[in-house]
């Protein structure tokens, strides 16, 4: 579903991402772990074609994202670390706005509100202007937008940052549900606990390199933290 082949991004000779090779199949939830500046966000930005790779290829459903940016974006949904929305519109209208852009015009009001239920946002809030929302509420609208897009792959850049533990937990459940429906997920995160809970695989990144990948079912929470710290150590 998502594939990186020798994917490299350099800024003035410094490699932000160094020859990443990665394949994420449908139903897989791949969590990228690593310190700030390890190359997690760069990886996601490359898949979104926000930046051009220095060399190598990022593919979505077998299509090169640089040559077919619009077609590949049809299949993915993106949740940034800080979901920012149109302040003068309500949550519901923002959802409609981005759904309209994504080409989904068939949603009824009830269906749209259904997405808010799924992400745990109160219906009253859906009718309020986003200008009055907390960060967590905006994050939930961002998740609802991704759900409504019915994407086959999700690109998540620390999506739960700023969510309370309960909301975070609900989000993990949601990811599991989506993964069981065949959605492939690439998630950058700092949350080891969450990665172990909702991920099927985790990858450790450091200085733009993917150091190691592990299957979460084969390790315990304590192991994950130990391995993470080992890799982060100089």
């Amino acid at each position: 579903m998502l594939e990186a082949i020798n994917l490299t991004k350099a800024y003035n000779g410094t490699k932000a991402l160094d020859a990443l090779n990665l394949k994420i199949e449908p139903s897989e939830v791949f969590c990228l772990l690593g310190a700030n500046g390890a190359g997690k966000t760069t990886t996601i930005s490359l898949f979104l074609n926000f930046i051009e790779p220095t060399s190598g290829t990022a593919k979505i459903k077998g299509l090169d994202v640089t040559t077919q940016p619009l077609e590949t974006k049809r299949h993915i949904a993106y949740i940034p670390e800080q979901v920012m929305l149109y302040k003068n519109l309500t949550g519901l209208e923002n959802l409609e706005y981005f759904s309209a852009l994504a080409g989904h015009d068939q949603y009824s009001r009830a269906e749209l509100l259904g997405f808010f239920d799924q992400v745990g946002l109160q219906r009253e809030a859906a009718e309020k202007r986003v200008g009055t929302y907390s960060k967590g509420m905006r994050q939930k609208v961002g998740i609802a937008i991704a759900l409504a897009k019915q994407a086959e792959a999700l690109l998540l850049d620390e999506p739960t940052s700023g969510l309370d533990p309960k909301a975070s937990n609900e989000f993990s459940e949601l990811l599991k549900k989506l993964s069981s429906k065949g959605v492939a997920v690439l998630m950058a995160t700092h949350d080891l606990f969450r990665a172990k809970e909702s991920g099927t695989r985790v990858g450790m990144m450091r200085h733009g390199k993917l150091m190691t990948t592990l299957k979460t079912e084969e390790i315990g929470h304590a192991d994950l933290e130990r391995i993470y710290l080992e890799h982060m150590h100089d």
């Binding site: 993915i76 993106y78 940034p80 929305l85 994504a102």
Partner: peptide, 18 residues
């Protein structure tokens, strides 16, 4: 500046057109 642009750019419509 408001940070909405990335979310718009992740949609299957050319940003120029939007």
């Amino acid at each position: 500046e408001q940070g909405i642009w990335p979310l718009l750019c992740s949609q299957p419509v050319a940003p120029q057109k939007i």
